[in-house]
Design a protein around this nucleic acid. Sequence first.
DNA 1: ACCTCAACAG
Length: 668
Amino acid sequence: MRSLKQGLIYHVHTIKAGFTPTIFSSNQLIHLYSNHGLVHEAWNLFDEMPQRNVFSWNAIISAYIKAKNLKQARVLFDSASQRDLVSYNSMLSGYVNEDGFETKAMELFREMQSSPHNVRIDEFSLTTMLNLIAKLAVVTYGRQLHSFMVKTGNFSSGFAVSSLIDMYSKCGCFQEARQVFHGCDEVIDPVSKNAMVAACCREGELEMAIDLFQRESELNDTVSWNTLISGFAQNGYEEESLKLFGHMSESVCRWNEHTFSSVLSACAGLRSLKVGKEIHAFVLKNGLTLNPFISSGIVDVYCKCGNMRYAESVHAGMGIRNSFSITSMILGHSSQGNMVKARQLFDSLVEKSSVVWTALFCGYVKSHQCEAVFELLSEFREKESIVAEALIIISVLSACAIQAALDPGKQVHAYILRSGIEMDKKLTSALVDMYSKCGSLIYAEKIFQRKFDRDSILYNVMLAGYARHGNEQRAIQHYEEMLERGFRPDAVTILALLSACSHRGLIELGEQFFHSMKKDYNILPEIDHYACMIDMYGRANELGKAITFMRKIPIELDAVTLGAFLNACRINGNTELARMAEGLLLQLEGCNGDRYVQLANVYAAEGNWDEMGRIRKKMRGKDIKKTAGCSWLYVENGVHIFTSGDRSHSKSEAIYLTLASLTEELYM
DNA sequence: ACCTCAACAG
């Protein structure tokens, strides 16, 4: 009875002939049905068996485990008239391999140890438990099991060694994994070797991984290649990963579905539409589109390359809903600023993983929809009982920073302290940035000082904070400390210093920094640096220097640099020069309402109403929208936005009456 | 005969 067909023929034959198959044959049929996903047929057969042995019970239990119906499997396990160690081990592995049954697995293992049914713990139970420990990453328990294995002589088979390596590696104990691997040097088991290669990749020790891979290369199989291809992609060496795939194709090992998942993840990291399309074609040719790992991988590649049209068509063509693919789509739409579509997909998910939550948070921040960020946060805390991911917190902090919302920012800070989230470098930078953008440099500095292992990003954030507040001395102090500690300044560092000089009118110092960026650090000035310099000259009443400087800018003037110049003209009341910039600016950004307002402000500052009227006329009939200035308030957990003269609130009558009486009181 | 190991996605 090798195939399902053979099994069915045999089964029908016994029914037609009216004889009862042997227990042995029935057991085999149960397995056969179960392996083909026919759990009902397996059950019917089991149910009708006049006599059963322990193998029959184990077969039907494992059938329900395969069908992921652990509840029914446990009912049968508990009611089985005969049970042995295999029944226990099957149930145990069922629990371990399914999410959410970890506690059940631990309980069952304990039950086995107290052994009311005369069961022992054997190698099968131990390797299964090691699997659980790897999943839960509790190494203390893993070490206990390890010593138990040594004591009971269950530690030298390939199964035991590879499981131990895997457990230690997934618990973050790379050295112990190595010790296990080197402790059994008689004959290298291929699976253990692959497990060790995987452990090296997880640790980022790619050279060691390659070394191991090349030694005893006759042991290498498809898994070895897959491990290495995936390891390179995971560590950011996408091109090398793809090269390895090329070498694999020339070797004796054939690729499989796992290979493509890794190759696609390398493609996504590379953000290469060209390679992505090639792999897509390869996948289509080989009929691999039904694999959910592969099809969602293709969707991800197109999303990462920013081609949402392709992504959508592949996504739509997938038979079943795949949460990985949906998450990729949400990320893709978010990074394109299409938050409506991102939100729709998000709402379509019944189970929202922390990755999708994070994706949506980041998307809203990226498109500066800060109110949406705060609303999403209340939604998150309402629906999810888990602690927010660091990335979510960082998103909310940047929203606070954009809005200069100090109170919500403090609340987030308190939340971090309460929930014991680790203050890593990224989180510290986000907090310092939030406090300094919300005007509280004292808090910012306190957090900054408490962090000893600073990186250049944290220095940039702190430095920019002081620069923004016009304290160029502290900014420069931090800059010097940064240099002393051996960090190289980057474009962001210099920009912060330039802006400090600009606000304080320190032309010479600013020029010094500007020149040193190219000369000393080989950093090319970007648009923002040029604009900052123009701004600096403008604020110092040096329009002439600004013009000389602009003539030397090697890249074409754009809205940012021209805008800076226009602003300089406004400060200096120079309408003549402003008119020169006007033509160019409107040519570049004629549809941006803010630019007209800026122009109007230049002339208004001079009281030049004729010029203002001229600008007004230009705007007419062009469907130009100026973004309305608005204010907002935090009441309880929500953000309330309002504009001048806003009457949209249901109680606006009462609000304005109260306001009027307050105003009256002020003047009394 | 049944139960254990390594490589795949956001």
